[in-house]
Simulated assay, not measured.
Amino acid sequence: MRIRSLLILALALVCAVVVPPRAHAQNAGYGVTVPVSDTSDAQRDHAFAVALGDVLTRTAGASITGASGYTDALGTASSLVQNYRYLRAAAGASRPFLLQVQFDPAAVQELAGSLQKQLAAQNASAVAPTSAASAAMPGASAMSRQDATLWVAPMQSGLDLPQLLSVLRANPQVASVEPIGADGDGVMLRLHARSAISTVLPSLQASGHLQRDAVDHPGADVSLRWLR
């Protein structure tokens, strides 16, 4: 009996050790660390929006960025934050602080599901017009496309990224655009154009919101300044 009691006690201790890490792992996908220049409200709100975009992409897939409500969703990032804290970045880092953000898993899943439904509805409504256009223009499907990586800075508030995406998606020469990374006050975007990027750039600058940056950002095909 004593041996049996010891085995039961040992099993209970093992369960007590195993369960917490498993519970922590369930929420691991809803935490993001974003480099920031300072601890101001503007930098924090921008980091929240960037972090939420990362979490939504992991939760529902990159295609979710095409949903009509995606940019508005990024603007509500602060309301989904469960907790956050600042850490000092490693010596020599380009940004002196790291902001660790943890989102509410249930809230993120609900938002991701809503955006997926929006996207499905958009795709369904676009089927008929697209088919008609293809029939009228036999060579449309062979239209030349080019992908480009854009670096845009500075992003100074949580509203800048949603506004930037709205400006880019409103351009008729832009097929799609989605955030793929961030560093401090800038954001890296993947842009899918309907024509050569050399043709698209002048129209982007003509909007008055963007201009070519004299210094190219590492890893970007094109670096732009966000003028708002």
Rank of each mutant, 00 (worst) to 15 (best):
Gly186His: 01
Lys117Phe: 11
Ala193Met: 08
Ser37Met: 08
Gly29Val: 06
Arg169Cys: 02
Arg88Phe: 12
Gln211Lys: 14
Ser198Val: 07
Val200Pro: 02
Gln26Lys: 13
Leu98Ala: 01
Asp183His: 05
Val127Ser: 09
Arg194Val: 11
Gly186Pro: 05
Gln173Cys: 08
Trp226Ile: 07
Gly181Thr: 02
Ser203Ile: 05
Asp41Glu: 15
Tyr70Leu: 01
Gln146His: 09
Ala182Tyr: 01
Arg194Gly: 12
Ser195Met: 03
Ala49Met: 09
Leu224Asp: 00
Ser78Gly: 10
Asp221Trp: 02
Val34Asn: 00
Gly69Lys: 03
Pro179Met: 15
Gly61Tyr: 01
Ala62Val: 03
Asn83Pro: 09
Leu168Asn: 02
Ser144Cys: 10
Leu164Met: 11
Leu6Lys: 10
Ala47Thr: 04
Val127Phe: 13
His209Asp: 13
Ala112Thr: 01
Met143Phe: 10
Arg194Cys: 03
Ala73Glu: 05
Thr57Asn: 14
Ser79Pro: 03
Tyr86Lys: 04
Arg88Asn: 14
Ala196Val: 09
Val32Cys: 04
Lys117Ala: 13
Asp38His: 13
Tyr70Pro: 01
Arg225Asp: 15
Thr76Trp: 03
Ala193Gly: 14
Leu98Val: 12
Glu178Phe: 04
Arg88Pro: 07
Ala89Met: 09
Ser37Gln: 11
Asn27Lys: 14
Ala135Gly: 05
Asp38Ala: 08
Gln109His: 10
Pro172Asn: 07
Val81Leu: 07
Ser5Ile: 14
Ser157Glu: 10
Ala153Thr: 08
Thr57His: 06
Ala126Val: 12
Gln109Asn: 13
Leu161Ile: 11
Thr199Asp: 14
Leu11His: 11
Leu9Thr: 14
Leu111Thr: 02
Pro218Asp: 05
Arg2Ile: 08
Pro96Lys: 09
Val101Phe: 01
Gly186Lys: 05
Asp185Pro: 05
Ala106Leu: 14
Asp38Tyr: 04
Leu168Arg: 02
Asp72Met: 09
Asp183Pro: 00
Leu11Lys: 05
Ser78Arg: 14
Gly75Val: 04
Arg2Cys: 02
Ser223His: 03
Gln109Pro: 02
Asp221Thr: 05
Met137Val: 15
Pro172Tyr: 10
Gly208Ser: 01
Leu161Cys: 04
Arg22Thr: 07
Ala121Trp: 04
Ser78Gln: 13
Thr57Arg: 12
Gly158Trp: 04
Ala10Thr: 11
Arg212Asn: 06
Arg22Leu: 14
Asp185Ala: 12
Asp213Ile: 06
Leu74Met: 12
Gln163Asp: 11
Ser223Thr: 15
Ala42Arg: 13
Leu165Pro: 04
Leu98Ile: 15
Ser125Thr: 15
Leu210Tyr: 04
Ala182Thr: 06
Arg169Gln: 04
Leu189Ile: 08
Pro218Phe: 10
Ala60Val: 09
Pro154Cys: 04
Ile64Tyr: 04
Ser157Ile: 07
Tyr86Pro: 02
Ala62Pro: 00
Gln100Glu: 12
Leu7Lys: 10
Arg58Ser: 02
Ser79Trp: 12
Leu56Glu: 00
Ala193Leu: 06
